[in-house]
Design a protein around this nucleic acid. Sequence first.
DNA 1: ACAATATATACGCCAAAACGTATATGTCAT
DNA 2: ATGACATATACGTTTTGGCGTATATATTGT
Lengths: 115, 115
Amino acid sequence: MLDPLPFFKALADETRLRIVLLLQDQGELCVCEIVHALELSQPKVSRHLSQLRSAGVLSDRRQGQWIFYAVDRHLPAWAEAMLGNAAVAATAWLDNDRARLLRMGDRPQRQAACC
Amino acid sequence: MLDPLPFFKALADETRLRIVLLLQDQGELCVCEIVHALELSQPKVSRHLSQLRSAGVLSDRRQGQWIFYAVDRHLPAWAEAMLGNAAVAATAWLDNDRARLLRMGDRPQRQAACC
DNA sequence: ACAATATATACGCCAAAACGTATATGTCAT
DNA sequence: ATGACATATACGTTTTGGCGTATATATTGT
């Protein structure tokens, strides 16, 4: 049920924090979009995504060849509040990462998550 | 000016998180009170207090032989908000640590901080 | 069935961080 | 000056965690 300590550990890494903030801003992104936006290697991003999912911060769904990650919809209220606060305080990173994402061509189409 | 990443790193350790939550709850405590409340060794507590002060999360003042630590009064609003949220989510720890603190005998007298 | 694409994982390596123990520093009382 | 108390720091060890490279798995299109 996601305690504060594992939550802080999950966010105590630059790569993971940038991923979570970008996902909170963008709603849902596939791995290759995150790789492009953060300018990091695919295995590095995948490893951190895996950690964030195990920690219960992110959820994923497969759609064809892509796997879309998003901030878990059932995050406790205190955790959502913290992400909101973090976003305010980390505008610089978020602005850059979002800008690079929007410059990316050939982004996969999203289908509405079922039900 | 305390960025989110160092702040998360500061709280991503059980000892440090318990210290910060207890201080937020109690206002100001000397090292020996924290040692007693958390049931940890003095060097361990001192080391973590030092890290939290360097990170800008705590401030300290000397009063005679004691050094009192407290959550820094100039913490950014987003950081204070996060601590409030963390306290809500970590009630179990906080309750135990506070209870042990109150059971402690011979606690030093506090003088109002000057000016 | 095969090639191309997207993603995950395994392995070995290196660096960061936490720890226990011992010791240093600073303050007070006698 | 000395001893007692409170706190900090140094040192060596161990654990944890992140990384790059290589490889495995899964899906799609031909």
